[in-house]
């Protein structure tokens, strides 16, 4: 009995440790975001100042630019995720359920195109976006982000679909259903939660992207949140507005936490549904 208590205590200690290490920097960001002026430079473990000034500055100082950027990020990240998931679901079906020559080669190629450092494709991508006439529009970013979301979603979904047993598809095939119908009727219900996991990770990646966002947009109206944060400024050159940066990061991280809280049940139940093979 004592052994059991010891074990569960140890377990909870571990849980607490995991949570604390993950959250401490975020906690520190929160207390810093409430500080003003020279308080920023002081080390404190508990909030010693409670000023909402930084939040006000972030949200309203630039005539609503930040809110605009925030909205852009939501639109762009969501569109990117929907687009890549749509392309990836059909592609993964083909890659995992249909036998054809060159399947492995194709998987490898998909992986390979995402192996170039982002910084190196910048110039080529810039030319392309200029050429397509989508420079400084949200389309430029949605387009560019598929370069890293697509290979990832395709690979993960392919792995996932491969693990589903043959039986679930057989009946539909016998009924003469077309592959598109099979995806919609048979796989989507099962995949829905898997889509959530990859979608969430892809969403975060698109939400946090900085380099492309900076390069392919040139007006405050089209920029996204990470670029917006990098443009938060003190009153003078060299001055870094720590309080505001922290306030902004808290603001942009909250929706993601909400997303995870909403979808985390799906993440789990979904992948359990994946285990129907038995």
């Amino acid at each position: 009995m004592a052994m059991k208590y010891l074990k569960s205590t140890a377990f909870y200690v571990l849980v607490v440790f995991i949570v604390v290490q993950a959250l401490f920097p975020f906690y520190y960001a929160i207390i810093t975001s409430f500080k003003s002026g020279s308080h920023i430079f002081e080390i404190t473990y508990l909030p010693n100042d409670f000023s909402l000034q930084n939040y006000k500055d972030v949200l309203f100082k630039g005539n609503g630019t930040f809110i605009r950027n925030f909205w852009n990020s939501i639109v762009i990240a969501t569109s990117t995720v929907v687009l890549s998931l749509f392309i990836a679901v059909t592609a993964s079906y083909a890659l995992s359920r249909v036998r054809f020559r060159g399947r492995s080669l194709m998987l490898m190629t998909i992986l390979a195109v995402s192996m170039f450092p982002q910084i190196a494709v910048l110039a080529g991508l810039f030319e392309l976006i200029k050429g397509l006439g989508i420079y400084n529009t949200p389309y430029a970013l949605i387009f560019a982000y598929t370069i890293f979301t697509l290979p990832f979603t395709v690979w993960v979904l392919t792995t996932f679909m491969r693990d589903l047993p043959i039986e679930i598809e057989e009946a539909a095939i016998v009924d003469g259903a077309t592959p598109w119908v099979i995806i919609r009727r048979v796989f989507l219900p099962l995949m829905w939660p898997a889509l959530v996991t990859t979608g969430l990770l892809a969403f975060i990646a698109a939400w946090n992207e900085f380099l492309f966002a900076l390069t392919f947009t040139s007006s405050m109206d089209t920029r996204t949140v990470p670029v917006g944060i990098s443009m938060l400024s003190g009153n003078s050159e060299h001055e870094i507005p720590w309080g505001m940066i922290m306030a902004a990061s808290v603001i942009v991280t909250l929706p993601l936490i909400a997303l995870v809280l909403i979808f985390q049940r799906k993440i789990i139940s979904g992948l359990t549904a994946g285990g129907v093979k038995g």
Binding site: A88, T90, V98, F100, I110, V113, F116, V121, G124, L150
Partner: peptide, 28 residues
């Protein structure tokens, strides 16, 4: 029939990747 459908399914992805990644990559 399935293989044909698979090819059609793969087309958008290959096209997307060829444009968005292929060109900049070859350029570099």
């Amino acid at each position: 029939g399935r293989t044909r459908a698979a090819m059609i399914f793969l087309l958008p992805m290959m096209l997307a990747l060829a444009i968005v990644a292929g060109w900049p990559l070859l350029r570099s």
